[in-house]
Design a binder for these strands. Structure first.
Lengths: 244, 244
DNA sequence: GCTATTGACTTGTTTAAACAAGTATGTTAT
DNA sequence: ATAACATACTTGTTTAAACAAGTCAATAGC
């Protein structure tokens, strides 16, 4: 439930842009006009607009106005620069999702794991392997490692449902920042064993490092997607003011 | 040359974090301390900090402070949520880069192109195919389409050097927003013809839609990377204030 | 007719202030 | 000892104001 004013305005403008009340290539009402409409200060309006600009919804033009550059997306896509769980993504794309836990153990981080995941050597971890089904097809293979101290009481039953739901709603922990690296890697024996592969010899791999509200990295995830069901969206803005 | 105060502070803090003057997991000086140090208002400090948070350098904790969560990167990576040209990326990663233009023609957008690129039907375009070499190996195949009206005077010679350099420094146009979609696709005949493929049957594909300062989309790019030389970085922050 | 200037808009940057709210560390009262 | 409270921090939100700077159109002067 958004209580902050800028959040409310941000979401209201976002919906109006998505519904094309403010169509592609048109200008938004000027900041001063929005100030009158929402009965708030110009700073608050500017904060909402800058959030929309970051997501590629609008683009401000000095002396002119704020242009809408949002266009409806083309196909089912998996992430848009936010942090979404598998469940949330599937739901948003209108797909039937299910999960099978194929491994659930505990282990202690050694040198090799520390190098790959960033967990200090000696950390006690949960190690989980899951197969994700979309509309009945085995398409995604997930490997998760959680800091045991941060996610106590994890069970295979929770893993089969939604770990994020457990973390946020049951444990009350807040997930804040996630660093992700996308690569394309050759298929492994586990991919072949668990997934419905169509003679692809590569997988789209998203490696994620997730931090909680204390700034502590508590999760490493490797998510291996069958190429034809993978799509990753991103909006970049060119930094001004480079040296020279 | 950054003249804005918040830019200066942002870059100064960024460098200090990268040099680990503010080490991983430590807190930055409090906002009020930074206000004294930089002789500016708290808002200006907060703006610089929020930019660092967006890039995954720091994370603010209500009532506690701002924690550094930056860690030096692992390997050669190709993009970090900014807009970088091939030249800039290669330079940053210390690689020898060269480019061969294999096609340079003009064409008019038809229904099929409009669907794929978003250019309106009838737009006059430059159509360019380029092979990118890193340390002598043909690894990337680029397909570019530019709105002719926006990038007048483009030549194969410019394409062989750096189109972005031409656009920004010669034409004086500013690139602001770029929307990108990452997918993994099967190799094409052109990939086989031009690139050094190592029995991969997929390519990492980045499709980009670039907008200039007028909010006009003037470029569509498809960049096809050999999987083992591809790495894409991203930092996401979980939005607070979801409905219920 | 053409150019230059003015003025009314727009967004961009910065400051100062006030208050809310979360955290940690005391001290006090039981 | 322990619980409750006070208080001195921290970051988070919002306002109001001033000025800078870019755009655009109408107007004045030649």
């Amino acid at each position: 439930m958004p209580k902050a004013i800028f959040q409310t305005i941000y979401q209201d403008l976002k919906i109006k842009i998505e519904e094309q009340q403010y169509p592609f290539q048109q200008l938004l009402p000027s900041e001063n006009a929005l100030v009158e409409h929402y009965h708030c200060s110009r700073n608050t309006i500017r904060r909402a607009i800058s959030m929309l600009a970051e997501e590629g919804y609008v683009q401000s033009m000095h002396g002119i106005g704020v242009r809408v550059i949002y266009q409806p997306v083309r196909q089912t896509s998996f992430t848009i620069g936010g942090i979404e769980s598998f469940q949330e993504s599937a739901c948003r794309n209108g797909l039937t999702a299910s999960t099978r836990v194929v491994q659930f153990t505990e282990l202690v981080s050694d040198e090799h794991i520390a190098e790959k995941t960033g967990f200090p050597i000696g950390s006690e971890l949960y190690y989980i392997q899951r197969v994700r089904y979309l509309n009945g097809k085995a398409l995604i293979f997930d490997i998760n490692m959680f800091l045991k101290a941060c996610v106590p009481g994890l069970t295979p039953e929770i893993a089969a449902h939604s770990i994020y739901d457990y973390i946020e709603n049951t444990l009350g922990m807040t997930i804040v920042t996630s660093k992700r690296i996308m690569t394309v890697e050759r298929i492994t024996q586990a991919d072949e064993k668990y997934l419905d592969l169509n003679d692809f010899n590569c997988m789209a791999v998203v490696s994620g490092y997730t931090y909680n509200a204390d700034g502590l990295m508590f999760e490493y995830t490797q998510s291996r997607h069958r190429p034809d069901y993978f799509c990753f969206q991103d909006t970049a803005t060119r930094k001004q003011g480079y040296p020279k």
